[in-house]
Nucleic acid binder design. Structure first.
Lengths: 351, 351
DNA sequence: TTGAAAGCGGTACCAC
DNA sequence: GTGGTACCGCTTTCAA
C-alpha cells in the first residue's frame, strides 16, 4: 500500500496541513521545511496528493467531459468530429484541463447513468441523440454545459450553425441546376429503420435534431422550387459512416425513376454515396451528390458541400464553458457556413 | 446547493447506508423503500451519488488515461494517433470505462504533475518524449500502464512493433532501387533544433525513442549497402505534422548534391515532403519519398510506406490494461508491419 | 432488512 | 510559519 499524506506528516513530525501545503501552497511554509517534507515523501514513496481526494475536497476536478452519442469509437470515425475534438482539446489545454471522453449508450437509462457518473466540471455535448434527456440530467447535476445541437434554450450556452439555412443553400444549388427528383440522405432518420429508402410523413418526426433540421432545410429549397416533401425520397443510413452511406444508396439506381441527385446530411455519408453512385471512370450520366461539413477528404473527392468551421466550433464550445459570458446573448455563438461547389454536383439530365 | 445523500436520508427518515444501497445495491433493500427513497430524491433534486466521492471511497475511478507528448490538440493532428485512440476507445467502452485525454507539457516537472493529478485507474502511454521519467511517475502512483514505445522493460506491459526492423525494410527498398545519397527525416531529432538538415554524431543521441529506433533502422540498411551514417543527411522537423515536414525539406533541392530520396519517420512528415519535393505535375527527375504508418491519406498520395495496425495497437493496449495477462510474456504484444510500395518511390537517377 | 460508525485521503479556515 | 480541526460525500463492514 502506498503511504498517505498522513503518514508523511507523522514521519516528518509535522501536521497534515503542512504537508498538504508543501504540495499545494509552497509559499505557506519555509523552503527548508518544504524541502525536508518533499524529501522524506520521496523516500517513503509517497506519490503526492491523491487526485480523487483532492477533487472531492476542492470541489472541482480539472477535466471537462465531451459527450458523444453512440459508441465512443464512432467519435473518431467522422473527421468532422475529430476536428471538433481538436478545438475542444485546444481550449481545454489552455485552461489546464483534461478531456474526459464519455460514450453515451443508446438506451436512455444507460446514457443517464453515464452522465451522472462522469467526474467532470462541465460538459460539451456533441450531437447527442436524446438531447433533452441528457441535458436535463446535466442540469440535475448542476454542472455547466455547452450544446452544439440546433435547438438551444435561450439561457443555454450554445455554439452552432444555422443548420436549416445551410442545408437549404445546398439544396438551392441543386434546384438551380434543375434537379427535381432527388433523394435526401441522413443517418438514423427514424429509429431502427433499415438502410435505404423509407417513408417519413413529416420531417418533424425525425428524432435526431441535426438530421431533422438539415432535412427540413433541404425540403425548404425544394418546396420553393415546387417539389413537395412527399415527392422527395428519404434515405436512412444506419450509422454516420462512409460504408453506411454507401449501403443506404445501394438500391437507388434500380428505382423506377432514379433520383438525379442525393443530398447527404454529412460528408462521410456523401462520400459513401459517391462510392456507389459515381465509381471512378464510370461513363454515362452521373448523379449529383452533396455533403455537409467539408472534411478534408471532401476536397480530394471533389465533393460539393457545406463548409462549417470544426475546430472553431470545438474551441468556442470549450471556451464558453470555461469563461461563461456575463450576458446571456453572448452565450450563443452562431458560426458561419459556406457552400463549396465542386465537381460532384452538376446540371440535372434532361428528363 | 444540491442536496446530498445525507439530506435525502434525513428526509426519508432512513440511514445514509440505505440511501446508498438504493442506488448502488438495489437488492439490499425492499423495493417499496427503494422506490420511496428514489422518489423523494427526485423531488429534492438529488442528482445521485457524487462521482468523485464515490471514486474516493471505492478506490477506483472508471476511467483510463491516455498520455500524449506535446500538446493535446496534436493528438488529433496525426491520423495514426487518431486510429490508435479509436482502438483504445473501443476497448475502454467494452469495459464501461471512460477515456481521459492527458496532454503532457514539454517540461519534465509539468509532465510529472500532469501524471500525478490525473484521476484514472491506469494509463496508456502513447509516444511520450521523456518516456522513462513519465513511467517512473506512474509507477510511483502504483497504477498499471501500457507502453507503446520501443524499449519496454521485461515486466512492463507493452504493445508495439519492431520499429528498427520495419524502418530497415523501407530503407532496404530504397537501397535496392539504387539510392545512396539520401536524407532521413524525423521530428524532434535533437532537442530544439531548427527545421532542416542537422548534424547528428550518433543515432543514440536522439532522445525520442521511436524516432531514434527508426533512424537506426534506416541507417542499418544503408550501412549494409556501404553508406556510412556520416554520409546520410539528417533532417529534423519541428513537429510531427505535414507542414513541419514540408518545412524541413525545403532546403534540400538547393544542396550541392541533393539526396535522391527522403525516408520519413511518419506519413504526415512524408506527405509534407512530397508537397515540396514532388508538387503535382512537375516534370524532371523526382525524389523518392517513403513514410511510416500507412495512414489513409498515404494511399491517395501514392506514398510508399510501412503499414502498422493502428486500431489494433490501441485496442491491444487498452485490453492489456484491463485484463493483465497472468504470465509476463503475454504482456508484450508484437504487432506485424508491412512495407507497402506505391508510386512515391522509384529507381535512383544515374549519377 | 436496516442502521451505526469508521473511514477513503485531503484541504482550508482559523487560531497560536 | 505551523498546527487543530472540521468537514468534502459517499461506501461498507458489522451488529441489531
Amino acid at each position: 500500500m502506498k503511504p498517505t499524506l498522513r503518514a508523511v506528516a507523522e514521519a516528518v513530525g509535522v501536521s497534515r496541513s503542512t504537508v498538504s501545503n508543501a504540495y499545494g501552497r509552497p509559499d505557506q511554509l519555509s523552503p527548508q521545511l518544504r524541502q525536508r517534507i518533499l524529501e522524506t515523501a520521496r523516500q517513503m514513496g509517497y506519490p503526492g496528493p491523491d487526485p480523487t481526494a483532492r477533487s472531492l475536497r476542492r470541489g472541482f476536478v480539472g477535466a471537462i467531459g465531451v459527450l458523444f452519442t453512440s459508441r465512443l469509437s464512432y467519435a473518431f470515425t467522422d473527421p468532422f468530429a475529430v476536428r471538433f475534438l481538436t478545438g475542444v482539446a485546444e481550449a481545454a489545454e489552455r485552461h489546464d484541463s483534461n478531456l474526459l471522453l464519455v460514450p453515451l449508450p443508446d438506451d436512455a437509462v444507460g446514457a443517464r447513468t453515464a452522465v451522472e457518473n462522469a467526474a467532470v466540471d462541465g460538459f460539451c455535448v456533441y450531437c447527442a441523440g436524446d438531447e433533452e434527456g441528457i441535458l436535463d440530467t446535466i442540469r440535475g447535476r448542476g454542472l455547466p454545459f455547452v450544446t452544439t445541437s440546433s435547438r438551444p434554450r435561450a439561457d443555454d450556452l450554445w455554439v452552432g450553425i444555422d443548420e436549416r439555412a445551410a442545408a437549404r443553400s445546398a439544396a438551392t444549388h441543386l434546384t438551380a441546376l434543375g434537379h427535381r427528383r432527388v433523394a435526401l440522405l441522413g443517418h438514423d432518420v427514424l429509429p431502427d429503420a433499415p438502410a435505404g429508402p423509407l417513408r417519413v410523413d413529416d420531417v418533424a418526426d425525425v428524432p435526431h435534431p441535426t438530421t431533422r433540421d438539415r432535412l427540413a432545410g433541404f425540403a425548404d429549397a425544394f418546396a420553393a422550387a415546387g417539389v413537395a416533401w412527399s415527392d422527395l425520397t428519404v434515405l436512412t443510413a444506419t450509422d454516420n459512416t462512409r460504408v453506411a452511406g454507401a449501403a443506404a444508396v445501394r438500391s437507388l439506381p434500380s428505382l423506377p425513376e432514379p433520383p438525379t441527385a442525393v443530398l447527404a446530411c454529412s460528408d462521410v455519408l456523401a462520400l459513401g454515396a459517391l462510392d456507389v453512385l459515381r465509381p471512378d471512370g464510370e461513363p454515362g450520366p452521373r448523379v449529383s451528390v452533396t455533403g455537409f461539413d467539408d472534411i478534408a477528404e471532401a476536397e480530394a473527392a471533389g465533393l460539393t458541400t457545406i463548409r462549417q468551421p470544426g475546430e472553431a466550433k470545438g474551441r468556442s464550445a470549450a471556451t464558453l464553458l470555461f469563461d461563461p459570458p456575463v450576458d446571456a446573448a453572448a452565450g450563443q455563438i452562431l458560426l458561419p457556413t459556406t457552400l463549396v461547389v465542386r465537381s460532384s454536383s452538376g446540371p440535372a439530365p434532361r428528363s
